[in-house]
């Protein structure tokens, strides 16, 4: 098809003097078929960063509640308390001796420790005032028992033996507290998961609007792509790739911000104002970071896939 020798000569001469065009061609060979979003992509990146930030916080809440519930319930599950009441100190002491003998003979009792009278009285001081409990009350004795799981599963025998040996003894397996804490933990988990789902839903909605706006803005390009034989799937893949890149950028920013915020919370809980919190200490271990990283990855994937489906649906209405 060489019909223009002089032009070719001129071009060869031009390239010999200026090799830049060939270099530019090789450098640009992977250029995306849809234009770079540039400044227009910044708002979407920012919104996805916020979504990602919230998703990480929701995931962190879920993990924290999970861990707290696990720690609370495992402590309650491994311990039972024997309380011995009596008309006077002597009766209580006799009851304690009898109860300790029963506990020593019971299979599954790992450790039984009697709390001192002063220690027990100290528990009542917030309500009765310093020194008043011992002065005016006949304070029951408390024995804390660490129990093996098989013993916990059937406490009726121990309860009966304690009642027979020490009539003033009652056994508390903390079941009421355990159930309440478990219920509270489940509510907390459900709430955190609900927030996570809401964030994902918001990411979907934003992605739908952005994809539609992008198609409208790039209508001419999409039209040319169609006319040179592009399938809807090809165009949707290009859009998906664009949204994935924007989403990934936003997700990483959101993840970094959230990790920073959570790191500060962790430091505050260990050392500062929140050190006395009843929540367990929060630390960003490798496993925890992996779980948290799943949140922005999910945001990113949801954004890209939603954009793809939106484009496919929109294009399907065209000729």
């Amino acid at each position: 098809m060489k019909m223009h020798e002089t032009d070719q000569d001129a071009q060869a001469d031009h390239e010999a003097r200026d090799p830049a065009p060939r270099q530019r061609f090789f450098r640009n060979r992977g250029a995306p078929l849809l234009p770079e979003a540039g400044a227009a992509g910044a708002p979407l990146t920012a919104v996805i960063a916020v979504m990602s930030f919230l998703a990480v916080l929701a995931m962190a809440s879920l993990l924290m509640v999970n861990r707290a519930a696990s720690e609370w319930t495992s402590a309650l599950r491994s311990e039972i308390t024997v309380q011995i009441k009596g008309a006077d100190e002597a009766e209580i002491a006799a009851g304690v001796s009898a109860a300790l003998r029963v506990l020593e003979d019971t299979e599954g009792v790992i450790e039984a420790t009697q709390r001192g009278r002063e220690e027990t009285a100290a528990l009542l001081e917030p309500w009765l005032g310093e020194g008043n409990a011992q002065a005016f009350l006949n304070i029951p004795a408390i024995i804390e028992v660490k129990a093996a799981p098989e013993l916990r599963s059937n406490l009726d025998l121990l309860r009966n033996r304690l009642a027979a040996a020490a009539p003033g003894a009652t056994l508390d397996d903390h079941a009421r507290w355990h159930n309440r804490l478990s219920s509270a933990a489940r509510s907390g988990q459900a709430m955190a998961f609900g927030v996570f789902l809401l964030v994902m839903g918001a990411a979907c909605a934003i992605s739908i609007f952005a994809a539609r706006a992008g198609l409208a803005a790039n209508h001419e390009i999409v039209s040319v792509l169609h006319l040179v034989g592009a399938t809807d799937d090809f165009i949707a893949t290009e859009v998906q790739r664009r949204f994935f890149i924007l989403g990934l950028r936003g997700a990483l920013i959101g993840l970094a911000a959230a990790l920073l915020a959570l790191g500060l919370v962790g430091v505050a809980m260990r050392t500062g104002v929140a050190a006395d919190s009843f929540l367990p200490a929060f630390s960003l271990g490798g496993f925890m970071i992996l779980w948290l990283a799943a949140a922005p990855v999910a945001t990113c994937l949801v954004t890209a896939l939603t954009a793809r489906l939106t484009v496919l649906k929109t294009l399907s209405r065209q000729y």
Partner: peptide, 11 residues
């Protein structure tokens, strides 16, 4: 090249 734009490929 044939259309005389071999030198403008990157334009």
């Amino acid at each position: 090249n044939w259309v005389g734009l071999g030198h403008r490929m990157g334009a």
